[in-house]
Each structure stands twice: as C-alpha cells, then as structure tokens.
Design a protein around this nucleic acid. Sequence first.
DNA 1: AAATTCGCCAACCGCTCTCAG
DNA 2: GCTGAGAGCGGTTGGCGAATT
Length: 278
Amino acid sequence: MGRPPCCDKVGIKKGPWTPEEDIILVSYIQDHGPGNWRSVPINTGLMRCSKSCRLRWTNYLRPGIKRGNFTPHEEGMIIHLQSLLGNRWAAIASYLPQRTDNDIKNYWNTHLKKKLKKYHQTTENFGNCHDLMTTSNSSIFPTYSQTSSTYASSTENISRLLEGWMRTSSSSSSPKHIAAATMDQNNMINSGSYVPASHGVFESMLSFDNLSSIAWEKSSAESAIFNGDSEGKERVESHNNPPLSMLEKWLLDEATGQAEEDLMELSGGDQCSDSVIF
DNA sequence: AAATTCGCCAACCGCTCTCAG
DNA sequence: GCTGAGAGCGGTTGGCGAATT
C-alpha cells in the first residue's frame, strides 16, 4: 500500500552491463549489502531496474562465483539433482554454491540435455541410467571449456577493470577501493589460483576423502557473510547445525556408489526418470 | 574472403510467492 | 482478510562469436 511501482519502465536501460555499471553496483553493495534491490537504482543512479541489478549481482558479481569449466563431478551432480528435483535450478544451485542457477540452467540446456538425449538414444535398447551416472566422468561427459571472451562472461576481466579503475581513480577513500579489493579476493577463487580447477573443491567435496573441503566451504561462506552475502550466512548456519536431509545423505552416498541405487529407487526403479527423458 | 548457419550465454519477461500495510 | 509491491524463480530470447559452406 502506498509503495511506488517496482520500476519505472520509462528510461530503464537494457542489455549488457558495462564495467562502469558493475563498479557502481559492486561499490554500492559493498557499502549497503545485498537486498532492498529497489533502492539500488535509486541510490546509485543506475538506469537499471531493481530486478536487473539483483540478477547482475547474483549471477556475476556476487563473491565466490566460479565460471567456466564444469567439472565431470559437477556435471554428474547436476544430472543427479535434475533427475531428483526437476528443473528447479535454484534448488540445484544451492548444492553447487559456486554456480548460479542461470549458469546451471544454461549448461543443462546447451550441453547436458543434448548429451543425455544422445546417450539415451544410443542406450535405450539395453542401457540404463546407472551406466550414465557411473560414467559421468568418463568420455561420455568430457569437460567442456568455455572460451568466451566477452566482458560480461569474465570475472577476471571485471577484476582487471576494477584494478584499472583504481589506478585512474584519485579518491583513496572511495568505495571503489573496497569493491576492487573484494573483487580481487573473489578472483583468487574464480580464477582457480586459490582452488585449482584440477583439484577443485567439488572434486574433493564429492569424493569426501578430505574434510578440508567442507571447511573451505564454511570459510568461503563466512567470507560471503563479511561481504554481505545472505546465502553465505545460510550456508554457515547449515554447517553449524547441519541438516542431513535425505537428499544430502544421498549426495554424500554418491562416492560409495549408493547414490545410483537410491536414484533408481526414487525414480521408481525404472530406467531414467521422466525429467531426463526427452 | 564473404555469406550463412549454428551454438552459447547474458539478460529479459512473466509468473508465483511472501510479506507489509 | 485483502491488496499490492518486492523478491525470487524458471522459461525464453536476442546478440555475438565460432564454425561451416
């Protein structure tokens, strides 16, 4: 009641975000934290609607986002979760904290869907999902390399741009410095220098042969809280009081191969579940 | 080398849910 | 309890680069 409309359609800018807009948005969120998206375009002067700001932050600027190559384990996890949860990308993304729902959705639609379809066609006479799952890190699911060179697809570029902005900026107390520092910190994760891709957190997390990966996730989530990430707070809280739901237990069982058996049970013992049949 | 087609992905659209008034 | 705005989610699309002809 009495609230102004969500966003004024007149004068709203659309299309790809520019580095300057990213800097403004990151700086603002560093100061005020995420949330209350309606106030973001008002207070920053960004000619973007609040939804666009939230999307940009959630999918690209948020700390801890990993972009590029999906590991075979990540692929397998997405397949598992999609078969269980359907196209609930946000729910699936909650089990892959470094990936956004949009990223997972795109990857599913562009890669995994086709591969599953192809696989299903070649195995429909004699194969089953069990084979699919157990070979998810073999040649059936090669690691894809994403080589996009566009600005928006590279957080490294964002970091560099911020650094460049820093050099050209004369104000030492500007929030831009805070933003740049944070982006630099994020970049350590995103670029793989902190968590090498070949020994990424997901490999270790999924294999569960090293509990340090859990500690890493907790520390990253705590870092996220420092950066105002409410999702990170949720993750920390879940670690402090871990809810071992059926699904989580199932995921934990994956390394022992129990997951595949459970999946078969959950999907009614049929071949592939409906959500992976096209 | 130029034209055309294909594939990927960032971002928008519209719907639903939640919550404040 | 009703209404309407904000937030979140999933589906879809437009633009761009890569691949092919």
